[in-house]
């Protein structure tokens, strides 16, 4: 106590086992808080998803303004190297368990920016993705279907990208450092 411990300290492995595992997963699946951070053009489809027309709140989802309280980060569309750095910071500031949803064709294979000099092609080299939603752009129905699938995975206890990230942190960090040349941020952002 007394000192900030979120910098330069490797996280310990978190294990979730206990009598409450089932009810935990049930609650997590029904209360997904999405950090309100749009990385690319796909963010425009998140607004109708969360407002009156498609109303994602009926599944217990809502937008929160701070990564500390969020469970899900939606990588919505293409990721430039500059944005990737921010996404990594936001992702690492979220508290476990946390999930990544990749939206659109760009995080899968680069999409229409496949030969761009500053957009990354494959997101899962840098962050553990739990759900891919394809399309350019995916409509809100597709996004909701993706979230429903994420809920099923969490219910079954299979959405464990956050565990993989901590286990294979060195590999992810190596990939990230390869592409982010000016790593002017703390080694770890928990």
């Amino acid at each position: 106590m007394g000192k900030d411990k979120f910098l330069n300290e490797k996280p310990e492995k978190l294990t979730y086992s206990g009598v409450f595992k089932k009810i935990d997963n049930w609650a997590r699946a029904r209360s997904l808080w999405v950090v309100a951070y749009g990385t690319g053009c796909g963010a425009i489809e998140l607004r109708p998803t969360f407002t009156s027309r498609f109303d994602a709140e009926r599944f217990g989802m809502r937008m929160v303004g701070t990564p500390r309280q969020a469970d899900v980060i939606v990588v919505s569309g293409y990721l430039t190297v500059k944005t990737l750095k921010r996404v990594i910071r936001v992702y690492e500031q979220m508290q476990s368990p946390k999930y990544v949803v990749a939206l659109g064709a760009c995080p899968i294979n680069g999409g229409m920016y496949y030969d761009s000099y500053n957009a990354i092609n494959r997101l899962d080299l840098y962050l553990p993705v739990d759900i891919w939603v394809t399309g350019c752009m995916p409509r809100p129905e597709a996004i909701l279907a993706g979230f429903k699938r994420l809920q099923e995975l969490i219910d079954d206890g299979k959405a464990d990208g956050w565990k993989k990230y901590i286990e294979a942190l060195d590999w992810y960090r190596g990939n990230q450092r390869k592409i982010i040349k000016n790593w002017r941020m703390p080694n770890y952002n928990w």
């Binding site: 500390r68 508290q95 928990w190």
Partner: peptide, 10 residues
Amino acid sequence: RKKTAISHGV
């Protein structure tokens, strides 16, 4: 039931 890894003091 979420984990927390943050500390800012007492």
